[in-house]
Design a protein around this nucleic acid. Structure first.
Lengths: 212, 212
DNA sequence: ATTTGTGAACAGTTTCACAGCG
DNA sequence: CGCTGTGAAACTGTTCACAAAT
């Protein structure tokens, strides 16, 4: 009972997407083939993922989730529960901040961004004091030099980085110094971070190059 | 001479990021260890990637790129050239469009988004005719029902999807019908697309869940 | 001595085949 | 029969070790 079984990254990503799909799914039951049709994933991938999920639930002994699947498809309610458990989301809202309030960053000040999500934005930062004063939002905006204390005081663990390329690594270093654990990087740059900090790259230009 | 050697996806992604790094790199030469230090990737990964790149150049017989690497590091100019060749970017600017002009989509109307990139935004679309009329941008905005002819006429091959969740699949289907080949999906939804259409998921909420 | 080039070993992911259950 | 559960097989990606080059 100590094999420390982890859900694979690839499966985790799919489960996050599946959860979104289930949130707007009204039927009582769903089969792996239904999911396959709506996502384009192979039905065997879906079953395999769900099998891994169950394995992880059993091994962590949290709850022996009963999918009640065989020959009937999965009950959607059970699936939602199982995925939430496995991903450890929705238990406690996590605090985030936005770093860089240019056009893109400012667009994220919209309160709708995080509604129905397990995240709360607690702060916005920009080196340009002017922007900090002019922009309106539901949460406070601060000049960038106040990042360290704000992040600590507000217990912010995640950041969305929307600064210019030249500021990307500098601001990342400051975020790390303040103890941030996850960064959503909307710049084109590769961020150098210590191994405990997770980065997800979301640059639109880079994405266009990939799908091109 | 017919083994159709393809650059692996993982390598391609890293090369896109490396290219961005090289663009702001002023030294004449760079070693795999230098790159490793600035990206966090293992130096062996870098060498392996570059080796694959060279293989692909040799096999496609385009140009036998001489990295001139051994014991000296790589010449940055050569690397840039090789990556550009391998990725087939920068040859011809590709036409894009933005679908959904809410707060996030509207932020992308900024001309700076695609400057210094091999992309040109040719059109923006929204179902809300009001938005189309009010918003200002360097390129024309159209009501969503005009998508089909605009995409064909302007030879648009890529789209950035910034609509609401409920419109995501509907708009995707229209984009596909109009012949789009790549979609940067900023919604939380999994998009169902035919195999020839590439999708890159860039939802901020999903990304926060991953780095959480 | 330093750094690339190369392929083999290893780890992670996807696909497949089919047993077993309702 | 239709659908899940399961592990093996095939595939992709990463790491390692060291020969070759200067």
């Amino acid at each position: 009972m100590n094999t420390t079984f982890e859900i694979p990254k690839a499966t985790e990503r799919r489960m996050i997407l599946l959860m979104n799909l289930l949130d707007s799914y009204t039927e009582d039951k769903i089969t792996s083939v239904d999911i396959s049709r709506q996502t384009g994933w192979k039905d065997s991938v879906v079953r395999h993922d769900l099998w891994l999920l169950k394995k992880s639930a059993v091994e962590s002994a949290e709850t022996t989730i009963n999918f009640d699947g065989v020959s009937n498809g999965y009950r959607t309610a059970d699936l939602r529960e199982a995925i939430n458990q496995a991903l450890g989301l929705e238990i406690q809202k996590k605090n985030c901040c936005i770093v860089g309030l240019g056009r893109l960053g400012a667009a994220l000040l919209d309160e709708k961004l995080t509604e129905d999500s397990p995240f709360v934005i607690k702060a916005g930062f920009d080196s340009n004091v002017n922007r900090v004063e002019i922009l309106r939002s539901n949460f406070p905006l601060y000049p960038a030099h106040e990042m360290n204390w704000v992040i600590k005081q507000e217990k912010i663990s995640l950041a969305v980085l929307t600064v210019t390329d030249k500021d990307a690594q500098v601001m990342t270093d400051r975020l790390i110094a303040a103890g941030i654990l996850g960064i959503v990087n909307m710049t084109r740059c590769v961020l150098k971070v210590p191994p405990e900090v997770k980065v997800e790259n979301l640059s639109i230009i880079n994405a266009l190059k990939i799908v091109n």
